Amino acid sequence: MVHGVEHTTNGNGNTAAFPRTPEAHHRAGSRTTHTTTKENNSMDAQDIINGLARYTGTESYFSLGAMFRNAVYTDGVQFLIENAQCAWLVTDAMAWVSQKVPGQNYDDGFMTVELHPKEDRTADLLITDGNGTTLYSQHYTAHTFPLPKGIKLYAVWGETSRGPCWILMVTSEY
């Protein structure tokens, strides 16, 4: 999955250059084979967990596309998408989160996005206010998420070069 990336600054006025527009997944005449076998994953669950711990900030924001004009995600979430093959989790969560605007139809600029896998290969997606109140839930009858204990992400209302928007990040990037 290829998403657009926007310019960010590192606090001292320096701007990092990144691609701005989404590219097509498939080009005319190209042939790709998509498989979902365990052998194709380059990282196991512990490698993904260890990799996520390295993200303590972000240098770029990734766009979720035109349907999500007020939502971006960070380097850590991009790492998670690539290595846990969970773009479905990010788009499902942000489809609900991005409908809320603090001060208009949501009182706070913070939410948690949690995936709780179960031993029977079902899972629950919970979006909370961060204080224990579930704002939204979705049940999956099957999933491919590789981390047996699930994941918690933060959705924070913030300012980027595109203006105010929801920023989805791994907890260590907060």
Rank of each mutant, 00 (worst) to 15 (best):
E39Y: 08
E39V: 11
N40E: 14
N41G: 02
N41C: 09
S42C: 13
S42V: 15
S42F: 15
M43F: 14
M43Q: 14
M43T: 13
D44R: 12
A45Y: 15
A45I: 12
A45R: 14
Q46M: 14
Q46D: 15
Q46C: 11
D47F: 06
D47H: 15
D47E: 15
I48M: 01
I48Q: 00
I48P: 00
I49W: 04
I49S: 09
N50A: 11
N50P: 00
G51A: 03
G51S: 04
L52R: 00
L52I: 10
L52M: 09
L52F: 04
L52W: 03
A53P: 05
A53F: 10
A53V: 07
R54V: 06
R54K: 12
Y55I: 02
T56D: 03
T56Y: 01
T56M: 01
T56G: 10
G57T: 11
G57P: 02
G57E: 08
G57M: 06
T58L: 05
T58A: 13
T58Y: 10
T58N: 06
E59Y: 06
S60L: 08
Y61H: 11
Y61V: 02
Y61R: 05
Y61N: 06
F62S: 06
F62T: 04
S63K: 13
L64T: 06
G65E: 10
G65S: 05
G65T: 07
A66R: 15
A66T: 13
A66M: 08
M67S: 14
M67Y: 14
M67I: 07
F68S: 07
R69K: 13
R69Y: 13
R69G: 14
N70W: 11
A71Q: 07
A71R: 01
V72F: 03
V72S: 02
V72M: 05
Y73G: 00
Y73R: 00
T74F: 09
T74M: 10
T74K: 07
D75I: 04
D75M: 07
G76A: 09
G76C: 12
G76D: 05
V77N: 04
V77I: 13
V77Y: 11
V77W: 08
V77M: 07
Q78E: 15
Q78V: 04
Q78P: 05
L80G: 03
L80H: 00
L80K: 02
I81P: 01
I81S: 02
E82V: 02
N83D: 06
N83H: 11
N83K: 03
N83T: 05
A84S: 08
A84Q: 03
A84H: 04
Q85P: 00
Q85V: 04
Q85G: 01
Q85L: 04
Q85C: 01
C86S: 12
C86F: 00
C86E: 01
A87G: 07
A87N: 04
A87M: 06
A87D: 09
A87I: 03
A87R: 01
A87Y: 08
L89P: 01
V90P: 02
T91S: 14
T91G: 09
D92T: 11
D92A: 12
M94T: 14
M94D: 13
A95E: 10
A95H: 07
A95D: 10
A95V: 01
A95R: 10
A95W: 00
W96S: 01
W96F: 12
W96H: 07
V97E: 09
V97D: 06
V97K: 05
V97A: 13
S98P: 06
S98N: 13
